[in-house]
């Protein structure tokens, strides 16, 4: 839209406050981080790309990259996929609000609470003694052996952690996707069905194209989430048993080991990873405008 008067004044008034706050709270610390990433532990001497060499060669960092990739694939697919399915399916049932509330519930639980909850799911006790973890009780009921869900890797423990992430974030995806789904005019869906299309065809040709921008927003948010994923891992394994992730590594270097150079370099690596995602979003935005 290009017809308002005093455009500059309105832009300054509308966008100004947000940019000002962001400049202080996020942009200024980010710039400082980039500078610190080339400095030593105490931010006193310039060390060139030493910290970056560490970030790309250290054993724990390499494990983190692998695990973040696993998170990227399974967490994003799980949250967006299940969120989308539930957003559409719950629209068809009478107890919609109740069902959605149940799925949303984990979002309302603090991470410390979530850590305790999943302890009672994954806890391992040796065969022959009373299990207090739900999953291992289930295994025994099925005649199988109990497993150390959070210990045996690399697939089992990482997927167990990722599932906790999915459990928490699916409600988020569902709420946003559901709002978008409900924005599709009912007659549009009905028209498709009257024309004899089955549900899958209605989804592919009407629902999905209409919801695509929202799905992109939700997926982007989840991808960003994955890159920053920290709380779940910190609370449940603290990266032990090779479940380390990049953000937890950064937290340790920063606050426990007080190596500001390394922590900053790891953060800059995160920035770099997000660039393709930003470019995709800009392209999408430009595409929608034309």
């Amino acid at each position: 839209m290009n017809m308002f008067q005093n455009k500059k004044k309105w832009v300054a008034l509308f966008l100004g406050p947000a940019l000002l706050i962001l400049a202080f709270v996020l942009i200024y610390p980010s710039v400082q981080t980039v500078i610190l990433s080339f400095m030593d532990q105490q931010s006193e001497h310039f060390v060139g790309i030493k910290n970056y060499i560490y970030a790309f060669t250290n054993r724990d960092m390499l494990i983190s990259f692998r695990n973040n990739l696993m998170w990227l694939i399974f967490f994003t697919a799980g949250t967006v996929g299940v969120g989308l399915i539930l957003a559409i399916l719950t629209d068809k049932i009478k107890y919609e609000k109740f069902a959605k509330s149940v799925i949303f519930l984990p979002m309302a639980i603090s991470f410390v609470g979530a850590g305790v909850i999943w302890k009672f799911v994954y806890t391992f006790r040796p065969p022959g003694s009373k299990q207090i973890g739900l999953l291992n009780q289930l295994m025994i009921t099925l005649g199988l052996q109990p497993e150390g869900w959070l210990i045996q890797g690399p697939w089992m423990n990482n997927l167990s952690l990722i599932f906790v992430g999915i459990w928490i974030w699916t409600g988020f995806c569902m709420v946003i996707l559901s709002a978008s789904y409900k924005g599709i005019p009912k007659d549009m869906l009905e028209a498709g069905r009257v024309d004899g299309a089955n549900e899958w065809q209605v989804f592919r040709h009407i629902i999905f194209p209409t919801m695509k921008p929202t799905i992109a927003v939700v997926a982007t948010t989840m991808v960003v989430n994955v890159l920053k994923i920290f709380d779940v891992v910190y609370v449940m394994t603290n990266g032990n048993y090779r479940t380390e992730v990049i953000a937890n590594r950064m937290y340790k270097e920063m606050f426990q080991y007080r190596n500001f150079g390394r922590a900053s370099a790891i953060a800059v690596v995160l920035f770099v990873f997000i660039i393709p995602v930003i470019i995709m979003n800009i392209k999408r935005m430009k595409g929608e405008e034309s």
């Binding site: 391992f124 006790r125 040796p126 003694s129 150390g148 959070l150 210990i151 045996q152 048993y241």
Partner: peptide, 19 residues
């Protein structure tokens, strides 16, 4: 050791005296 390595790794130290 009771339960072997997996039990050692997954038992909370505060509960380890219970057996």
């Amino acid at each position: 050791v009771w339960g072997g390595p997996i039990t050692v790794l997954s038992t909370n130290f505060g509960e380890a005296a219970n057996p």
